[in-house]
Computed example of a mutant assay.
Amino acid sequence: MKRSIQLVALLLTVFMGSCTGGKDKAAAEHVDAKPIVKLADVKARPVDQIQDYTATVEAEVKNNIAPSSPVRIDQIFVEVGDRVSKGQKLVQMDAANLKQTKLQLDNQEIEFNRIDELYKVGGASKSEWDASKMQLDVKKTAYKNLLENTSLQSPINGVVTARNYDNGDMYSGGEPVLVVEQITPVKLLINVSETYFTKVKKGTPVDVKLDVYGDEVFTGTINLIYPTIDATTRTFQVEIRLDNKDQRVRPGMFARATLNFGTAENVVVPDLAIVKQAGSGDRYVFVYKDGKVSYNKVELGRRMGTEYELKSGVPDNSQVVVAGQSRLVNGMEVEVEASSQPSSK
């Protein structure tokens, strides 16, 4: 009986050892197995260099209508939304100071005329004549300035877009009494990468879409190119003008402008090939060559449906991994899926 028990124990030991050995062998084979990947052939082709920019529509000219010093408002002649013409009277301020200054000016003119007559016959010196003339000029300037700040006129053809006071209010020097904006034409200001500085030309047509009008395209032109580059953002400003003759486009609307900088020969890859590195905004592509993959950092260009233009990072006529990237590391040997075997070159 004792020998039977020992025999059974021996058989169990041999059996367990064979099982463990089988598992170790399977694990070793599993470690040695190469990751299977799917490849896509990619090459360079002409790509339209189209860039989209966002901006807020601005008035061509914006004027704040206000006097130069605090004074009571006598009457405001317009409301928000009213169209006004250049030179049109918009606001009448209290005229008490103006009337007083006019009386002083009239008296000074009388005094100057008296000194002038005396000077002509030798009854007054040149210095007296000069002093009287200077006083008269000062009064004229003061009266002209006060006249302009008592009767406020529109300097442009435009629309009243803000009214901050009512009749009888005391203008305090803060917000303007009125705001008048010229909305024919309007403009957009966009920031363009310095890469395109030599390619942006004045007068170039630009397609503009406004969110409020959906996919409707408005045509603008490049009206102004700022001559300096912002050292912080490495961009320069470009002003786009829209004629806006029907005045459908209004200041404050959100706009998207599309600029076409011609074409360039760049590699185009499927979007499945792009890998985003965790914790950063960098993008990478696994490039297959001679049985191994390299982890190449790329610079993305345009997205075109299910493809991306690459500015750099992948050579022309390459093969890139489009499936199976999760297990890959730089320099790893891989096995290519049968349906995407590298073509013989």
Score class of each variant (00 low, 15 high):
Lys2Glu: 15
Ser4Gln: 15
Leu10Gln: 10
Gly17Leu: 13
Ser18Phe: 14
Lys25His: 10
His30Trp: 09
Asp32Leu: 04
Pro35Trp: 11
Val37Ala: 03
Ala44Tyr: 13
Pro46Val: 06
Val47Ala: 01
Tyr53Ser: 02
Thr54Leu: 02
Ala55Ile: 10
Ala59Arg: 01
Asn63Arg: 07
Asn63Pro: 01
Ile65Gly: 05
Ala66Asn: 13
Ser68Pro: 00
Ile76Leu: 06
Phe77Gly: 04
Glu79Gln: 13
Glu79Ala: 08
Gly81Tyr: 10
Ser85Cys: 00
Gly87Asp: 06
Gly87Phe: 09
Gln92Trp: 08
Met93Asn: 08
Met93Ala: 08
Asp94His: 05
Ala95Phe: 13
Ala96Tyr: 11
Asn97Arg: 07
Gln100Gly: 13
Leu103His: 07
Leu105Ser: 10
Gln108Thr: 13
Phe112Lys: 00
Ile115Gln: 05
Asp116Tyr: 14
Val121Ala: 04
Ala124Met: 10
Glu128Ile: 00
Leu136Pro: 04
Thr141His: 09
Leu152Asp: 14
Ser154Gly: 06
Ser154Gln: 07
Ile156Phe: 01
Asn157Gln: 08
Asn164Thr: 03
Pro176Glu: 14
Val179Gly: 06
Leu188Trp: 08
Asn191Val: 00
Thr195Glu: 15
Tyr196Cys: 02
Tyr196Pro: 02
Phe197Pro: 01
Pro205Lys: 01
Phe218Ser: 05
Asn223Met: 03
Asn223Val: 00
Leu224Lys: 11
Pro227Ala: 03
Ile229Gln: 02
Phe236Lys: 01
Gln237Arg: 11
Asn244Arg: 01
Asn244Asp: 09
Lys245Arg: 11
Asp246Thr: 08
Arg248Tyr: 10
Arg250Ser: 10
Gly252Ser: 08
Phe254Met: 11
Phe261Gln: 06
Thr263Asp: 14
Asn266Pro: 03
Val269Leu: 07
Leu272Thr: 15
Asp282Val: 00
Phe286Ser: 08
Phe286Thr: 08
Lys289Thr: 13
Asp290Trp: 12
Thr306Tyr: 12
Tyr308Ser: 00
Glu309Phe: 06
Gly313Arg: 04
Gly313Leu: 10
Gly313Pro: 11
Asp316Pro: 04
Val321Ile: 11
Gly324His: 07
Gln325Met: 13
Val329Trp: 14
Glu335Arg: 07
Val336Asp: 12
Val336Asn: 06
Val336Trp: 12
Ala338Asp: 15
Ala338Ile: 08
Ser340Lys: 04
Gln341Cys: 01
Gln341Asn: 09
